[in-house]
Write a protein that binds this DNA or RNA. Structure first.
Length: 361
DNA sequence: CGAGTTTGACCCGCGC
DNA sequence: GCGCGGGTCAAACTCG
């Protein structure tokens, strides 16, 4: 069995050059920007709005949880028009991300169309978000998580299942209801220029799988938050185009304060029930130990945020998926108009960054 | 001994 | 319908 490098050794360079990108900026009005930790300056579209923020600020030192009313203002991913095709010059990694974005957007839209008539602003929050944001309300109709499915299975499993059970023991079957699509939870992805695969974000993760990634020599690792009741997952993979870039995708929201960060409770109501009920932005990325390093960010989110105007008031924009360290400072998205003029990928990855990636190859 | 990792097998969704 | 690839499970294993 292969031995991992000591964690401490890995962390030394962790999160150097973080990048965040919106997974569907075309729909959300969000675009990428590179945040330079060393200078505090921001590059790329909308960078000026980032420029005044320090990294510690971004990481949510001044966290205050969003009130439900703020969440109500969150717009669902409704695309008025199909997203533009990715530019032909896109890297494979970015194309993959885009593909995922588009798929998820499509699925979410379909779900909304099916499950909702005329969505009101409050009800248009993607149901997948409700799942996450309401962990304490198992009666929520939107919940289709495995626990609920398991409960359903328990109820539906009776007589003729006994024979099947024997087969299942061998097949590791975890029967799922047909016609009940497995819902994808909201995602937040970011790219990290780092030598370390698994970034220490302060939460405790347990690796539950690893898969080889097609067209990439680097495997993708799957992690789950080890905190009981917290179903947050994250995928970590290294870009095949630029091995120095690690793509970390978070899925779900933490329902608990950061367990290992001394200041993990900063701004976080210790009452997790409050978080759940209010769909509070519990996606807290704590203060890592490597803040002194120069870091670049591109933020991403999924499902996409439908920021319909470029001037979406940063104070009212609270996405339950969006990391609190970005929300808390009301980080305003870059100009949406600048995003619509380009392909999705260009929105996700600022041109400068893409140039960087090319140069590095 | 508990927690975390590895790894092969399995399930499922999607594209062809 | 089939194959592929992504995602997950769980037994075996390692480590502290």
């Amino acid at each position: 069995m292969e031995k991992k490098k000591p964690e401490g050794e890995q962390r030394e360079n962790s999160m150097a050059n973080l990048r965040f990108s919106d997974e569907n900026p075309a729909a959300s009005g969000y675009g990428g920007g590179i945040f330079d930790m060393a200078t505090g300056a921001c590059e790329g579209s909308g960078g000026d709005k980032w420029g005044t923020l320090g990294f510690m600020d971004l990481l949510g030192i001044h966290q205050d949880f969003a009130a439900p009313s703020l969440f109500d203002s969150f717009q669902p991913p409704i695309l008025s028009s199909p997203p533009p095709p990715p530019p032909p010059s896109s890297s494979e990694l970015h194309q993959e991300i885009l593909h995922e974005i588009q798929l998820e957007s499509k699925q979410l839209i379909q779900q909304q169309q099916q499950l909702q008539g005329l969505p009101s602003p409050a009800s248009t929050v993607p149901e997948s978000s409700e799942v996450l944001n309401n962990p304490a309300t198992p009666n929520s109709s939107s919940i289709s998580s495995s626990s609920n499915e398991a409960a359903n299975d328990e109820q539906t499993k009776t007589g003729d299942d006994e024979e099947q059970d024997q087969e299942k023991t061998k097949k590791q079957l975890k029967p799922k209801k047909k016609n009940q699509k497995r819902q994808r939870e909201p995602r937040f992805a970011f790219m990290t220029k780092s030598e370390v695969d698994h970034l220490d974000d302060g939460y405790r993760w347990r690796k539950y799988g690893q898969k080889a990634v097609k067209n990439s020599p680097y495997p993708r690792s799957y992690y789950r938050c080890t905190t009981a009741g917290c179903g947050v997952k994250k995928r970590v993979e290294r870009s095949s185009d630029d091995p120095t870039v690690v793509v970390t995708t978070y899925e779900g929201q933490h329902t608990h304060p950061c367990p290992i960060t001394p200041r993990g409770s900063i701004g976080i109501s210790p009452d997790s029930s409050t978080l759940g009920a209010a769909s509070a932005a519990s996606f807290i990325i704590p203060q890592p130990q490597y803040l002194h390093q120069q870091q670049h960010y591109i933020y991403t989110s999924s499902p996409p945020l439908n920021i319909t105007t470029a001037t979406t008031t940063s104070s009212s924009f609270i996405n339950p998926l969006f990391p609190a360290f970005l929300q808390e400072r009301r980080v305003a998205p870059p100009s949406a108009s600048s995003l619509r003029d380009h392909g999705l990928l260009q929105d996700i990855v600022p041109s400068q960054m893409r140039n960087e990636a090319k140069e590095e190859q």
